[in-house]
Computed example of a mutant assay.
Amino acid sequence: MKCISVYTNNFEQFSDIFESVVDSEFAENEEKEVDGITVSHSGEVPEFYFERMSQKPEVVVMRDRSRGVTILQHGSVFEILFPELEDALV
């Protein structure tokens, strides 16, 4: 899964920039500033990362079913997890 980290602990600020972050293209390890908030491509995370993080009581798990993404919020960071897209071309 691809992981984009948004460095804020303010849900309202996160919500304000969520659409533009999800629609942006990021190179691996690229960092951008969106409306004064640091956003970075945190690379690929394995499936067990989500399982392990979702078990922790301090982690909030949210899903955007329309986009197929999962959002983990913990501390002062939101992590947007994108599922791997299977290759449509054979």
Rank of each mutant, 00 (worst) to 15 (best):
V21Q: 02
V22G: 01
V22L: 07
V22D: 05
V22E: 02
D23N: 14
D23I: 06
S24K: 04
S24D: 05
S24H: 02
S24Q: 00
E25P: 00
E25I: 05
E25N: 09
E25Q: 13
F26L: 04
A27Y: 10
N29M: 11
E30Q: 15
E31S: 13
E31Q: 12
K32A: 11
K32Q: 10
K32E: 01
E33A: 08
E33T: 14
E33P: 03
V34Q: 02
V34A: 03
D35L: 15
D35W: 14
D35N: 14
G36D: 00
G36T: 01
G36A: 02
G36S: 02
I37S: 06
T38D: 11
T38P: 03
V39E: 00
S40D: 11
S40K: 11
H41I: 00
H41S: 14
S42W: 09
S42I: 04
G43Q: 09
G43W: 06
G43L: 06
V45P: 00
V45S: 04
V45R: 03
V45T: 04
P46C: 03
P46T: 11
E47P: 08
F48T: 05
Y49V: 08
Y49S: 07
Y49E: 07
Y49D: 12
F50H: 08
F50P: 00
F50G: 00
E51P: 06
E51L: 13
E51W: 12
E51G: 06
R52K: 11
R52C: 08
R52M: 05
R52S: 10
M53E: 10
M53P: 01
M53V: 07
Q55D: 15
Q55R: 14
Q55T: 14
Q55I: 05
K56H: 10
K56Q: 15
K56T: 13
P57Q: 08
P57S: 14
P57C: 05
E58P: 00
V59G: 04
V59E: 04
V59K: 03
V60P: 02
V61F: 01
V61Y: 01
V61K: 01
M62S: 12
M62L: 12
M62C: 07
R63P: 00
R65T: 14
S66K: 13
S66F: 04
S66T: 15
R67D: 02
R67K: 13
R67C: 04
G68Q: 09
G68S: 10
